[in-house]
């Protein structure tokens, strides 16, 4: 009976090769001896040693992590408060769409809109403007994730907590947040990864003095590719693979609580 699925099986195998061949090539070339990033010469770990002393890569990496951490914290706070509010007021479709729209708006449109706005209010471009911009679309993702769960929570538990004399703060931290935990973790992982990877919006809203990692990678690709990009690509691959797998594990654990 499985004969009829043969063609789709062949395509599926091709797709897996298609998805993994390019990144495998990058990983392979990261162990290359040659100083040409594209041509294989022999095995070596040299570029793994030199990358740590590459100042532009290291300082831009720190900036990227900084932006991603601040963006994640802000998006979680803003996204969660919006979700709690919308849930309490039984908000209709408009406010829900409004709060999640930045996730759907093409990044280029949002990017030049923000660039224009920062220029109109005379805010000079820096990491602050990148953080604001990233928080806009990450908030939308947090709202989407948290709203999906918050509707499932039984409001009578919160009411009982209040009736029994718990303060609003205590109810929030002891009742609401623990119940939202899986979606908060998902929202945090999403925000962090999206911010770390984001290029187009950061490209338009960042100042020239504080390039983040994607900007450095972009100019490395455009102007003279150095072998370090293969190493960097491999390290980023490992980070995101570990991140995705960790997120899945944490998600499972959090779901079971």
């Amino acid at each position: 009976m499985h004969k009829r699925f043969n063609l789709s099986a062949v395509v599926a195998v091709f797709v897996i090769i298609f998805l993994y061949l390019p990144i495998t090539a990058v990983v392979g070339l990261s162990f290359n001896q040659s100083s040409n990033s594209l041509i294989w010469k022999g095995f070596s770990l040299d570029w793994y040693k030199t990358i740590w002393s590459n100042e532009p890569i290291m300082s831009s990496f720190q900036r990227t992590i900084f932006v991603a951490v601040v963006t994640t914290v802000l998006s979680l706070i803003i996204g969660t408060t919006i979700s709690i509010g919308l849930n309490k007021m039984k908000a209709g479709g408009f406010l829900r769409t409004f709060s999640t729209a930045p996730a759907i708006v093409p990044d280029l449109v949002l990017a030049i809109g923000l660039l224009t706005t920062f220029s109109v209010i005379s805010m000079s471009l820096s990491l602050t403007t990148v953080i604001i911009s990233h928080t806009v679309f990450c908030t939308a993702f947090v709202v989407a994730v948290v709203l999906a769960r918050i509707g499932l929570i039984d409001p009578s538990i919160e009411e009982a907590s209040t009736d029994l004399g718990a303060s609003a703060m205590k109810t929030l931290f002891k009742i609401t947040i623990p119940q939202l935990m899986p979606s908060l973790i998902a929202g945090a992982v999403l925000s962090f990864t999206l911010s770390m990877d984001e290029f187009v919006i950061a490209f338009f809203t960042n100042g020239p003095e504080t390039p983040t990692l994607p900007m450095v990678i972009y100019s490395m690709i455009r102007f003279g590719v150095t072998p370090e990009i293969n190493v960097l690509g491999t390290l980023l691959l490992v980070i995101s693979f570990v991140g995705v797998i960790l997120a899945q594990r944490i998600g499972k654990v959090a779901d079971s609580i």
């Binding site: 998805l19 990144i23 995101s240």
Partner: peptide, 19 residues
Amino acid sequence: IILPYWTNFLVRTYAWLVL
């Protein structure tokens, strides 16, 4: 299928320069 999608998109684009 999702895993490569979570890799930096510039790195994924660059990979095709390599190929």
